[in-house]
């Protein structure tokens, strides 16, 4: 008898969850911002994935006779750079690198920020410690801190991801904490505590799922910001090491020949702007979809 009722409850829970998911998906598909943003990001992701097919000559292959050739449909689609490499290939392979770095930073900051925010909201003594460290780190302007970190660390992609994550985590942690503080005060959390549930179970099983929406939205903005900062660092010559292509690197090399080759600025710039715009629009749409007040 008892077993039967437990099974019923599980089935009901499962159905409710499925319905909730379907409702969210419907809402997402009907949200113009979210769809437009997704479309822009997906286009760039697709081009990045298809880079070996679309640009078979690769980003490093150069021919000295073809230096700084203007774009043309039958030659170099986006022109060639100062070393005679295809800008089209470099922009597409650069997309792989810039997107990987941005996504890694977004994901890492989301996980770390959530852990910090959750534990800060749950344990008072940790709250002061974690939040004061976050306050301090966010008092240092983020681009400057990232540059300074790259000055100390060796210039490679892993360290770049680490630097950008250090800069972004406090922002996620703050959002996670303020959402978690609200959830912590709810009656059902109090009920769980009095029923003897362990802290871990309350934090991860019951608070974490309820703060996922704001954290997810924040992470999409972090993703966008990481792409901008990565491009900025590479443009300054302290990000992705040359000759590896990233959008910032191509712009860095383009600056030296700006009087002769507009295509080395315009194309990587277009990709950067479209990707960041797409992510920001997506973030706004996601915020509307996940916000229960906009039903």
């Amino acid at each position: 008898m008892e077993k039967q009722s437990r099974q019923d409850r599980r089935a009901l829970e499962k159905r409710l969850r499925r319905e909730q998911r379907a409702r969210m998906t419907r809402k997402f598909l009907h949200n113009k911002l979210a769809m437009l943003g997704s479309l822009m990001i997906l286009t760039v992701v697709l081009l990045a994935l298809l880079a070996p097919v679309l640009a078979p000559q690769g980003p490093l292959e150069n021919s000295v006779y073809d230096r700084l050739t203007p774009p043309s449909l039958d030659g170099y689609l986006f022109g060639s750079d100062n070393l005679g490499r295809s800008v089209f290939a470099r922009v597409l392979y650069g997309a792989r690198l810039s997107l990987t770095i941005g996504a890694s930073v977004g994901l890492l900051s989301m996980v770390l920020g959530m852990v910090l925010g959750l534990y800060a909201s749950y344990y008072r003594f940790l709250d002061n410690l974690i939040m004061r460290v976050c306050d301090g780190l966010s008092a240092i302007p983020s681009t400057l801190l990232a540059i300074a970190l790259m000055a100390s660390l060796d210039r490679n992609i892993l360290n770049l991801i680490i630097s950008l994550t250090v800069v972004s985590v406090p922002r996620v942690a703050r959002v996670a904490r303020s959402a978690a503080v609200v959830v912590r005060e709810q009656t059902y959390i109090e009920a769980m505590r009095s029923a003897g549930a362990s802290s871990t179970r309350i934090i991860w099983g019951h608070i974490a799922p309820n703060i996922l929406s704001p954290v997810l939205v924040q992470s999409s903005y972090i993703f966008a910001n990481a792409i901008i900062t990565e491009a900025a660092l590479s443009f300054l010559g302290v990000g992705v090491p040359l000759p590896e292509p990233s959008w910032g690197n191509i712009l860095y090399e383009g600056k030296a020949v700006i009087h002769k080759a507009w295509w080395m600025i315009v194309y990587p710039g277009l990709f950067t702007a479209v990707t960041v715009l797409g992510l920001n629009i997506f973030g706004d749409g996601l915020r509307d979809v996940l916000d229960p007040h906009t039903n």
Binding site: I258, H259, W262, V266, L277
Partner: peptide
Amino acid sequence: SMVGISMPSFLLGLLLVLLFAV
């Protein structure tokens, strides 16, 4: 405002140089 938020400043700077200086 969305375009403003999404445009990296150094990129806009380079584009302005291309247009007004070059």
